[in-house]
Design a protein around this nucleic acid. Sequence first.
DNA 1: GCCACTGGTGCATTCGATTTCACCGTTTCA
DNA 2: TGAAACGGTGAAATCGAATGCACCAGTGGC
Lengths: 333, 333
Amino acid sequence: MATLKDVAAAAGVSPATASRALSEPGSVATAGRERVLRAAAQLGYRVNPAARALRSGRSGHLGLVLPDLANPFFASVAKGVQARARELGRTVLVADTEEDPALELDLVARLREQVDGVILCSSRMPESQLRSHADAGRVVLVNRELDGVPSVSVDNADGVRQGLEHLRALGHRTVAYAGGPASSWSDQRRREAFAAVEGITVVDLGPGRPVAARGVAAADLALGSAATAVVAYNDLVALGVLDQLRTRGVRVPEEMSVIGFDDIPAAALVHPPLTTVTLPLREVGRRAVELVVATADADPSDPPAVVRELLGVELVVRGSTAPAAAGAARSQA
Amino acid sequence: MATLKDVAAAAGVSPATASRALSEPGSVATAGRERVLRAAAQLGYRVNPAARALRSGRSGHLGLVLPDLANPFFASVAKGVQARARELGRTVLVADTEEDPALELDLVARLREQVDGVILCSSRMPESQLRSHADAGRVVLVNRELDGVPSVSVDNADGVRQGLEHLRALGHRTVAYAGGPASSWSDQRRREAFAAVEGITVVDLGPGRPVAARGVAAADLALGSAATAVVAYNDLVALGVLDQLRTRGVRVPEEMSVIGFDDIPAAALVHPPLTTVTLPLREVGRRAVELVVATADADPSDPPAVVRELLGVELVVRGSTAPAAAGAARSQA
DNA sequence: GCCACTGGTGCATTCGATTTCACCGTTTCA
DNA sequence: TGAAACGGTGAAATCGAATGCACCAGTGGC
């Protein structure tokens, strides 16, 4: 493998000049620069990332920590992160925490040393731990907010609001919520949004894991309540609800309406197709990269610019919601 | 940040001994080793990955290149890779090629220099390009085989065979295949397996992108043929087939049977639940890590041990397959 | 004609851990 | 008794790029 020294020798300049010709072309005379560039191409020179990282202190890597790669939600964010990072010439180190806060803590600590900045996605860590990492700098949160820490989130509250207004317009007055993990910041925001909507009685089906099996259980709970509609923490849970309702012989949307969150690919493929809240997840990933690169490149002595982005969401009405049935009136009696 | 020199000074030994105490504890006397370990803990010492990588030539990173992170198939493999890599103290650099062979070529080239080894998943590259990378060493293929290159694959042929035997036992005699990308090695293996099964007439619906929309189109093609069953390239395509069959008023499985591949989470959640071939994808990822770490750690002067693993698959019979209907007899007339 | 300045350049050092090599004292075997 | 083997250690070289600093020739101002 050719080193910078080889290139410099071939171009008849010193390694220092060769280095400058490659990394800040403006500061080198045209003739020499061209010779260096030509020699580099000739020899197939490629910088040694380790050497550069050692001296400069930056690896060019970004860290991405998320609870579950197999969850389409995080997969989409990861794709956005990937794409933008590649455009910026960065590479991405991914770590899957398996929804385990302890593992997350460990992975973040390890990763911090290997990367220029960390994107921490839907962190399940308690606030105190999270803060200790975030305050050390070079961390951007996704779908979680914390004072003094840059973050990118989706407008959970508005998603809930849109869903509930849709249901209210259809005549629903009692709505069940099949919530997500208790440690989920998004879930907390959604719960608050539920409470803030007027004219709808909320039946809380409690927290649960964000998987289909949780939806199966939630469906029966909902049937045992006065609710005429179910809002699920995410589409996976909603799919579980749909499945169980079919098993119980309850027709959707005639007898029960269902709304999901995330708009995963499968949501449009089930029957009835799921009414859900679509989130700009790729964009979330891209923005997070912008933020983390900006903080990584920033002069550490400057006061850090803390940016908080909130991206809009949109209700996609498909076939799983319809006007409340007679049963709705019954529940109001 | 404390450096090795600081630790050595605190422990009263030379940096060389401190290094050995930390990386090969057996080669240092107990007393000194303990002092070093204590000093390291005391000072909160953490190795500088860049410095280590520079001198030793190994970064501890593994590269994972795959066509699409949002595809549950690859997401599962990625999880397996993640998990095993973490256990082995390695980190994973992920690159998403967006199903683009040109981008893949570029990403692999870039990644190679930053990692100890590359796991190349379902490469879409033509064989010649692939070979040029693979021959340079430290590459493990997943779901693709090439002479002289270590690889981990699933037994595609056996999956097809199991599916077709299931269908034949149910009385099906004409089966349509909604294939995947023409550049997919798996698809080629499956096509061959189709041809090898006796007593079944195959209707080839041609190649296509591995997405639901492709299944929608394939469903109509299947209906226009004599086929009484459809085997899809993957579950996403199968879901598209199911959806379109419902739209066309064709009952599944009574009038048409459908079999998918991959067993993604959504497969069990649709109605009817999808009969599909389940693949040990996590395990594939784990094995790939074993192989790539082994090749990375191997003495480059030794003849490379080329291991080819083939992991078993299993047909999961759910609700989308049933005995061939009267229509089957008609098609044979 | 002297000085200050400037754009370019090279020398030498630096980053932090690893690794080679020489060397020490002790033991073991001939 | 001498030589060889051995576990353990440290000094110093090494990895490859980046960079502070000194220095050069050439320019312009006075």
